[in-house]
Computed example of a mutant assay.
Amino acid sequence: MPRSGAEARRRLQQAALELYRERGFDRTTTAEIAARAGLTERTFFRHFPDKREVLFDGEADLRAALTQAIAAAPDGLQPLDLLLHAFREVEHLLEDNRPFAEPRLRVIAATPALRERDLAKAASIAEAAAQALRRRGVPARPAGLAAHVGWATFHQAAQAWIDDSSQSLDAHLLQAFADLRALCLTALTGDPGR
């Protein structure tokens, strides 16, 4: 038996991920996850409300860390620079969890219900970032736009990092924001009639 709640949680996550990869999300039950982890189904439900949330554990921690990093960022930064600073402060949460993050993304990509849940979680994080930007004095519309574009850019960097581990998440993040800036400049200097 696991000695701590954290150990039980980790075992349940690992068991779920293994089963989702072997059988698919839809054909895996919470009872099977618990059995694979050497725990009871009751223990599963003490840690997770349903089998989807096994893959989204840590989302609340990421949201809280991101909003705190936005609040603590240096003064004088433009909204996207402020977000880049904050993302760089929290990227360790993903880096520390890479062995789980990579297969997790693959399971989500293969399961429509999980993709939908992932989009809802992403929207929640982007809205929390927008609220944090507003508290920093960024007007509502630019705060919302920056938060959603910034989160999409962070997500793009994370996917690139999963696909190419030869560079750090930080390097992928810096590149993604550089690409975003270049895209914005191209749009601003391009022919508006196109």
Rank of each mutant, 00 (worst) to 15 (best):
L94H: 07
D81R: 15
A86Q: 08
L84A: 04
L83S: 06
L93P: 04
A86D: 09
E95K: 06
D81F: 14
P74R: 11
V90C: 00
L80I: 15
D75T: 11
L83V: 13
A69H: 03
R88E: 10
Q68C: 06
P74Q: 10
L93A: 02
E89I: 01
L80V: 13
F87D: 01
I70C: 01
E91Y: 06
P79E: 13
H85A: 05
A69Q: 04
L93H: 04
P74S: 09
V90D: 00
E95G: 05
E91C: 05
A65K: 12
L83M: 15
T67E: 13
A65M: 12
D81E: 15
A86H: 07
L94V: 04
A65T: 08
A71K: 04
E91A: 05
P74I: 09
H85M: 03
A65G: 13
Q78I: 09
T67H: 02
H92S: 11
L82I: 10
A71I: 02
H85D: 09
A73E: 01
L80N: 12
R88I: 01
Q68W: 08
A69E: 03
L66V: 13
A64G: 12
L62M: 10
V90H: 00
A72G: 10
A64T: 13
R63Q: 14
A71S: 13
D75F: 07
L83P: 02
L62P: 08
A73Q: 03
H85N: 09
F87E: 01
R88M: 05
L82R: 15
L66F: 12
L62I: 08
E89A: 07
Q78H: 15
L83H: 05
L83F: 09
Q78W: 14
L66S: 08
V90R: 00
L94I: 05
A86N: 11
L62C: 06
V90F: 00
Q78V: 12
E95S: 07
F87V: 02
A86R: 04
D75N: 12
L66Q: 07
A73W: 00
L66K: 04
H92W: 12
A69K: 02
L94D: 02
H85P: 05
A69M: 04
A86P: 12
E91W: 04
R63T: 10
L84W: 03
V90N: 00
G76T: 07
H85C: 04
R63D: 03
E91L: 10
A65N: 13
R88Q: 11
I70K: 00
R63W: 01
H85K: 05
H85R: 06
L77M: 09
F87N: 01
L84M: 06
Q78D: 15
I70E: 00
H92I: 05
L94M: 07
A71V: 03
R88F: 01
L66C: 14
H85Y: 12
F87R: 00
A64I: 06
L84P: 02
P74G: 11
A71P: 02
H92L: 07
H92D: 10
E89W: 02
H92C: 05
L82Q: 14
R88K: 11
I70A: 00
V90W: 00
R63C: 06
L66P: 08
A71N: 03
H85S: 07
A73N: 03
D81H: 15
H85I: 02
H85Q: 06
